[in-house]
């Protein structure tokens, strides 16, 4: 298989991709703060999303092993992988619809939100994806302990993101007068972050399940469930890569 690489180079690749993502995130933050070009923000979000989809979610695995014994674990995992991606495509239409709603209602304005908090939770989620990738790589190479530690870190970071959005950001926004019923901006903000937070929550449940079962060595041989949880987790990250500029950076804030 063309993409099967050794553990060290896979981990290194994860580090490089994370550095790119971090640099691009800082870049988009600075672009928004200085000359605020919508085109540049869209381009940066697309590049970040593509990096995660290719290097963390391994979309290329979909094209592999269409031949072979239909009853082997590899072939069945390939079918499961296709099913998961089909689900993600379907789910992407929900978030696409929310984005259309936001663009239609708000255009090039955005709710007035706490910029540092936004950058903070975004960073937390990106870092969690980095650790998720490490965890998946490790179980794929038979390192159960490394997998468990990294997954636990991912879980805690994801929990941090959820708390940051729902229990900090929502409270701050409501304090500033941005409530669900205050207007189109509030409606769009709570709906988009709420739908995303719901997906983070389900992702946390999956992570908890693979962590608990992983402790008992369930994935030492057959580790597709870990891959599935990881791909789903990265997908939730990709959604936020688009939602973050859409809510925090694009256009001018409504005061």
């Amino acid at each position: 298989m063309a993409h099967k690489q050794d553990k060290a180079s896979m981990l290194n690749q994860g580090v490089f991709i994370f550095v790119y993502l971090a640099v691009l995130t800082v870049l988009e933050f600075l672009v928004a703060a200085s000359f605020n070009s919508t085109a540049v923000l869209i381009a940066v979000a697309l590049v970040k999303g593509a990096l995660v989809v290719y290097y963390y979610m391994h979309v290329y695995k979909l094209s592999a092993d269409h031949e072979g014994d239909h009853n082997s674990y590899e072939y069945k995992s390939g079918t499961n992988r296709l099913g998961l991606w089909l689900f993600l495509i379907s789910d992407a239409f929900v978030f696409g619809g929310l984005l259309v709603m936001r663009m239609n209602l708000l255009g090039l304005t955005r709710p007035n939100l706490n910029q540092l908090l936004g950058l903070g939770v975004t960073s937390i989620l990106l870092i969690s994806s980095f650790f998720m990738n490490r965890g998946e790589t490790m179980i794929a190479h038979g390192d159960r302990k490394g997998f468990l530690n990294n997954t636990l870190v991912t879980f805690l970071l994801g929990l941090g993101f959820l708390i940051g959005v729902v229990f900090v950001e929502w409270r701050l926004a409501a304090h500033e007068g941005l409530t669900p019923s205050s207007g189109a901006a509030g409606a769009a903000f709570y709906m988009m972050t709420g739908m995303h937070a719901f997906h983070v929550l389900t992702g946390l449940v999956f992570l908890a399940i693979v962590w608990i079962n992983g402790r008992r060595g369930l994935y030492d041989e057959k580790h597709y469930p870990v891959e599935a949880a990881a791909v789903y987790w990265h997908f939730v990250d990709v959604v936020w890569i688009v939602f973050y500029p859409a809510l925090y950076l694009v256009g001018t804030a409504i005061v």
């Binding site: 709603m101 239609n104 669900p180 207007g183 509030g186 709906m191």
Partner: peptide, 15 residues
Amino acid sequence: GMGFFDPAKGGNPVL
């Protein structure tokens, strides 16, 4: 009371 489709709150029924 989220105002997605309520023009009084800046929403858009055609959306």
